[in-house]
Amino acid sequence: MELVIYLTVAGLFFLGAYGLMTQHNLIKLIICLNIMEAALLLFLVKLSYRIGGTFPIIRSGVELYTDPVSQALSLTAIVIGASTTALLLALSVLVYREYGTLDVRQLRRLRG
């Protein structure tokens, strides 16, 4: 079961990377970035998971908790990903205004 999750993580990550290299629409590229990030979030959540564990708030009578640290990490990672996504979306609006297209292949004024 663990192996399946790890393979899913790697698969999702490289799916995102593959999409980054093959898709041409800026919005699709942003979605691909989010897929890459989601893969890592899955990985972080997997790290926190304990079989039979409950949510990490200390109560009487409960012995096994899931790991709070990596859940916190995934929360932070979500925040960072969200802000990057927001920035990217803003950039793509501005890029559309300047270049009149959302095709990444047209963004080639800087080269060589």
Partner: peptide, 10 residues
């Protein structure tokens, strides 16, 4: 260096 970011990502 074609300026295409997807090449660079590759």
């Amino acid at each position: 260096h074609t300026g295409n970011i997807q090449d660079y990502l590759l």
